[in-house]
Design a protein around this nucleic acid. Structure first.
Lengths: 106, 106
DNA sequence: CGTGCAATTGGTTATTTGGCCAAGTGGCCA
DNA sequence: TGGCCACTTGGCCAAATAACCAATTGCACG
């Protein structure tokens, strides 16, 4: 395989991998509505705050979210407005095989 | 978090995770052009055939590809025509932070 | 100033992943 | 029917992931 192609695929894969986790997907959905502090996201997800913080680091390193410190709190927001299309694509896969996957997930 | 929501997020994450790997991304791109046998995909990726076969299993379990045996060969094709949007979304993330990510990938 | 909350970082552990090799399966043809 | 393809599966191992707890940092406010 061509080296440039491999680099490009690796970068794309990194972005996809970053959102390929239930908690991080949840964070992205939430941030698509409005910015949130770590506190609120932690409450929503129901995991340890340190865990959520690490998820946010992953999203940040993939270039998906940005953070801003205001006082004692840190607010996160999406860097990219149009992640909607990504979910559409995922949905189109799910429509083809919704039943089997629903079963597998339970 | 709501249980139904968690299930949905888990399923979405599984689909994303399935494509979140350079080799599997490469396979998906290739299959979006035309069907391919394992042989050809192996050649293209340059890994062991057993490795490629396992990648294909991951994609199949996520409902992204389908396989069909014809004679001694097995042909894979996309089950979903419109993964293009998914790549568009990934691209939109990359545009925002292309330089940093390119560096990180090298 | 020091206590207390918000968040991150480090450490540890269990699980998952991704790779190769070796062995097994199934079809085709000489 | 024997052997060679095209694949898949199982085993193994190194590395990455995800979770929690504990310790640390940074800010604010009494």
């Amino acid at each position: 395989m061509n080296k440039d192609r491999l680099i490009k695929l690796t970068i794309q894969a990194r972005v996809l991998k970053a959102v390929a986790h239930p908690s991080r997907l949840c964070i992205v959905e939430e941030l698509s509505k409005r910015e949130r502090c770590v506190c609120e996201l932690t409450e929503m997800i129901g995991a340890d705050m340190s865990t959520v913080s690490k998820h946010l680091t992953v999203l940040k390193q993939a270039g998906i979210v940005a953070d801003e410190k205001r006082g004692a709190m840190v607010f996160y927001r999406l860097r990219v407005p149009c992640l909607g299309k990504l979910f559409e694509s995922v949905e189109s896969v799910l429509e083809c095989s919704a039943r089997e996957l629903m079963e597998a997930a339970k």
